[in-house]
Design a protein around this nucleic acid. Structure first.
Length: 539
RNA sequence: GCAGACGUAGCUCAGUUGGUUAGAGCGUCGGAUUGUGGCUCCGAAGGUCGGUGGUUCGAACCCACUCGUCUGUACCA
């Protein structure tokens, strides 16, 4: 033969991952915890398919002129374009619109599902990932938004993220609109600059105020100094405008919601109002009540009052005027769940992680289909993303499923196989995970090696000797592993048959159950005594 | 998209100013041990040096392009 034939290379498309059994179980567990919270709040599940007609997903988008970037699209037989959904909100709007006459509004609903984005993957960021959404459709009041924030906070805690390690940050799109208008960015002609400003504001928690000032002004080099790395063109605001935004609004706006604020200023919109800097003429220093800024601030104040009345603290839910979220379709309050602990990658490097969930009010989304005003608000938890982070926190993989009990095969004839399989079935009937060895039975050592590597708790052995005596060998592999540390010589190790007992065939199920229960008790002891050291570094 | 770093065995990595046959550890497989996991010992398999082209008598090493990974950044419904 010449060279090796060109082997087909097995490879995964970038941005996609295979999920291990541990990942799947962890995801299932996370979803169950989140679902419990949503159900308790009175939300019901609904499911929509992964594909939608492209126009149903994209019609409301600001940039419909990029049909296949960002989304995966295919053309159907009848030449209609379909796309894989990129979030769960747009399909919900479609579902509600299509069934608007049957659905009782307000419609409170949740669903988990895979979504797809055709973009560059990052840490904890994939091209297929799972989101878990909850929405209230047909609810105009900010009490719905307040409820969403509380439900997000509850979900974070249900997932085992301690208070103080996450925060739900809340803002209002109307406030941002009002502020930008105030510094002279109102009107159609400044639409592009407004977007740039919003993007810059969104970076406040990531970069800090100095870099945000650069982005609001001339621009910023991502290498830290001129000429290094990539240059991001700024919004081109002048110093007064930048100071107006930064000093008067972003850095001080938050303080208005410090504890005690709402009591002192209740109902006092002028007092609530942000004092515009010198870029605004004197007579406009205070906005009137109808100004978007004040309407938005009033809504934020209501949200805060509701969540505070329910006992939530600023540690959990925080009004933060730098939250932006997506650029177009949100119309009012927006919120974002952020993790406050450091996330590291597999090399131990700290990595910019970003938010693990977010949402907001989208009053216009259903109207696109129905023409009717159907105000709605909702949020999404990035399950896949959150799972990457939780792995770091050591909150995952603690309740491992126990591997099956292995019945080894000593004789391969049909009659014997039937006997072994019957033992397995007896255990299964009793609710015990069990299996018969399915490999080459002639190499007995390999059977135990297999059991060892699979972390089987127990092996059952019956050769002709035991068979004749109506007995079984039952081997505690976990205890045996512990004993092996003290024996250095192989002959002794084999002959001593550590942690192995002989039992009557009839006692199989009862003995296995007893032993499994003892092993489970030991695991609890070990995990509780070493709970605080479970997040030690890489091995 | 832009910028930088990095691509050598399944994994983690060595590899001299460019010089003959590219190495180690771990893992895998086989044996010591055909009815007993771990340890130990012995042995073996495993490489288009990411790819293509170029410079050179000669390239894992130098150059160009390209693909991939990572990090930052941009975009993010």
């Amino acid at each position: 033969m010449a060279k090796k034939p060109n082997k087909l290379k097995a490879r995964l498309p970038r941005g996609f991952v295979d999920r291990s059994s541990a990942d799947i179980r962890a995801t299932d567990a996370m979803i169950a915890k989140i679902r419990e919270v949503y159900e308790r709040y009175g939300f019901d599940p609904v499911e929509t398919p992964a594909f939608e007609y492209t126009d149903c997903l994209g019609k409301f988008l600001p940039d419909t002129d990029r049909p296949n970037t960002g989304v995966f699209s295919v053309q159907d037989d009848d030449e209609q374009w379909m796309s894989l959904r990129y979030d769960l909100t747009a399909p919900l709007a479609r579902h509600v619109s299509e069934n608007i006459n049957e659905i009782q509004l307000p419609y409170r609903t949740y669903r988990a599902g895979w979504v797809f984005r055709n973009e560059k993957p990052g840490p904890g960021r994939f091209r297929q990932f799972m989101q878990f959404d909850a929405d209230t459709v047909g609810a105009p009041g900010v009490q719905s938004d307040a409820e969403m924030c509380m439900m997000m906070a509850d979900a974070m805690e249900a997932l085992g993220i301690p208070r103080g390690q996450y925060v739900i940050r809340v803002n209002n799109r109307k406030v941002l609109d009002g502020v930008m208008e105030a510094i002279g960015l109102g009107g159609e002609e400044h639409a592009e600059r407004r977007l740039t400003v919003l993007r810059a504001i969104d970076k406040l928690d990531k970069f800090g105020s100095e870099d945000v000032k650069l982005l609001l002004g001339e621009g910023r080099w991502d290498g830290g100094e001129k000429g290094k790395g990539d240059f991001t063109k700024g919004a081109g605001l002048n110093t007064a405008q930048i100071n107006g935004l930064m000093d008067a609004y972003l850095l001080h706006g938050v303080k208005q919601f410090a504890p005690g604020f709402d009591k002192e200023n209740e109902g006092d919109l002028a007092g609530l109002g942000w004092v515009a800097p010198e870029v605004i003429a004197d007579e406009e220093k205070f906005f009137d009540e109808a100004h978007a800024y004040n309407v938005g601030m009033k809504e934020l104040q209501l949200i805060w009052q509701i969540v505070a009345a329910c006992g939530y603290t600023e540690e959990q839910i925080k009004i933060d005027t730098s939250v932006v979220r997506g650029l177009e379709y949100y119309t009012g309050p927006v919120y974002e769940a952020e993790l406050l602990f450091d996330v590291t990658n597999e090399k131990g490097e700290k990595v910019q992680f970003g938010s693990v969930g977010g949402g907001g009010r989208y009053d216009g989304l259903v109207k696109r289909f129905t023409g009717r005003d159907v105000p709605a608000t909702g949020f999404s938890i990035g399950v896949s993303r959150l799972m990457t982070a939780l792995k770091n926190l050591g909150k995952l993989g603690q309740d491992e499923v126990v591997a099956p009990v292995l019945v080894t095969v000593m004789d391969g004839d049909t009659e014997a196989l039937g006997r072994y399989q019957k033992m397995v079935q007896e255990m299964r009937t009793a609710g015990i995970r069990a299996e018969m060895y399915q490999g080459n039975w002639k190499k007995f050592g390999n059977q135990l090696k297999y059991a060892d590597r699979r972390d089987c708790p127990i092996a059952i052995i019956q050769g002709s000797d035991e068979r004749e005596a109506g007995q079984l060998q039952l081997k505690d592999l976990i205890e045996g592993k512990r004993l092996s540390e003290e024996i250095t010589d192989n002959v002794t190790w084999r002959e001593s048959r550590p942690a192995q007992i002989t039992i009557a065939e009839a006692d199989l199920v009862a003995t296995v159950q007893k032993l499994l229960a003892e092993q489970a008790e030991d695991r609890v002891k070990v995990s509780t005594s070493s709970a605080d050291t479970s997040t030690k570094g890489d091995a």
